[in-house]
Every structure is written in structure tokens, then in C-alpha cells.
């Protein structure tokens, strides 16, 4: 590989990385259940969460509420609603409430809230509908998404770019006729 070609590829890779880093936004995280198939009232309820903290005002604390009729997997009536209230517990803070929106049906609902700092939050889930009202309680630990700072991104991808150059070098050395 010529020196000119090598420089071109290096410049391209770094430009790509830095240019793209500008658009960085928080990713969603791996969700996990904070309430799992809990039988309460006429419901069987699961709540999964991906509690990402942000400090730029982006709502990233995601909650999925799954409700079935108790004792089975029958969808709950379409009028069933759920709302989540999150209260920071350390340090204590004001409660945030968000009504869930429907996903594919009333049994699958989703809410996203702004978690503006890391730490423990108390989660209060209120379900209402023809099958009756119920409430559930749980706790969640909010964390940042942990994506590196933009300038660090270029540093992180440097080993990949270097490995790429070694690969190309190997290719050119062992090329077949």
C-alpha cells in the first residue's frame, strides 16, 4: 500500500469517526424486570425497565408494563390504563408521573420519563380499568448510558483502525497471483 493511500485511509477513518461523533445520542439500555408476573387483583403484571439517566433533558428512563388477565395470557380490556410515578429517594426529590401509551394492545404499554440524575428511584405503578384498579411498588437504580465522550470515541476506535491497516498490509503481502 502506498504512503499516499495509507494517509488517505487514515484521514478518512478519523474524519468519519469525528464527524459521526457529533450526532451522538444516548442509546437505550438492556431492559430488565423490576416486577415479574406478579398476580394482583385481576391482573398478572410485569414491569421491565431501562432506566437511563440523561443530563440534557432527553427522556430516557423507559418502562414497559405488561398486563394479562390473572391466570392466563388473555389480553386485558382496551380501556385499561397504567401510569408510573417515579420518586427519587437518595437524595429525595419531586415525583414524576407519566401515563403509559399503548404498544400493540392494551396488555402492552410503555412510558418514558426523564431521569436527570443517577441513583435510586421508587416506582409506583397504578393500573385502572374494567378489571379494577391495582397499584404496585418497586425500586430502580438509574444509571448513565456510559457512552464515552465524543473526543474519546476517536481514541477508542484507533485500535480498530490500526488493526485494519495491519489486515490490509497482510492482504497485500500475501496476495495471490
Amino acid at each position: 500500500m502506498s504512503v499516499w493511500m495509507r494517509r488517505l485511509v487514515v484521514a478518512g477513518a478519523v474524519t468519519l469517526a469525528l464527524g459521526m461523533a457529533r450526532a451522538a445520542e444516548a442509546h437505550s439500555g438492556p431492559p430488565y424486570p423490576i416486577i415479574s408476573n406478579q398476580a394482583i387483583g385481576n391482573y398478572s403484571v410485569s414491569v421491565w425497565t431501562d432506566p437511563d439517566t440523561t443530563d440534557d433533558g432527553t427522556k430516557a428512563g423507559r418502562f414497559w408494563v405488561t398486563m394479562y388477565r390473572k391466570g392466563g395470557e388473555d389480553v386485558v380490556p382496551a380501556e385499561t390504563t397504567s401510569a408510573l410515578t417515579l420518586t427519587p429517594t437518595d437524595p429525595p426529590g419531586a415525583a414524576l408521573t407519566e401515563r403509559s401509551s399503548l404498544l400493540q394492545d392494551a396488555s402492552h404499554q410503555y412510558a418514558v420519563l426523564l431521569l436527570d440524575h443517577e441513583g435510586p428511584y421508587h416506582v409506583h405503578v397504578a393500573i385502572a380499568g374494567p378489571l379494577g384498579p391495582v397499584t404496585l411498588e418497586s425500586d430502580v437504580q438509574a444509571t448513565y448510558d456510559l457512552r464515552p465522550a465524543r473526543w474519546l470515541m476517536a481514541l477508542y476506535i484507533l485500535p480498530f483502525a490500526l488493526a485494519g491497516f495491519l489486515w490490509v498490509k497482510l492482504l497485500l503481502r500475501r496476495r495471490r497471483s
Binding site: M1, L16, A17, H27, M153, P159
Partner: peptide, 21 residues
């Protein structure tokens, strides 16, 4: 996921360099 992101980005760059090669 934030920790995985640089790895994803790295793979894309790695593949691009390999393809150019």
C-alpha cells in the same frame, strides 16, 4: 450499551479499511 458503542463503531471502521484493502 454505551460501552459497546465504540466497539460497534470500531468494527465498522475495521470493515471499511479491510474492504478498501
Amino acid at each position: 450499551p454505551g460501552k459497546v458503542f465504540p466497539i460497534q463503531l470500531g468494527f465498522a471502521i475495521f470493515g471499511a479499511v479491510g474492504s478498501i484493502g
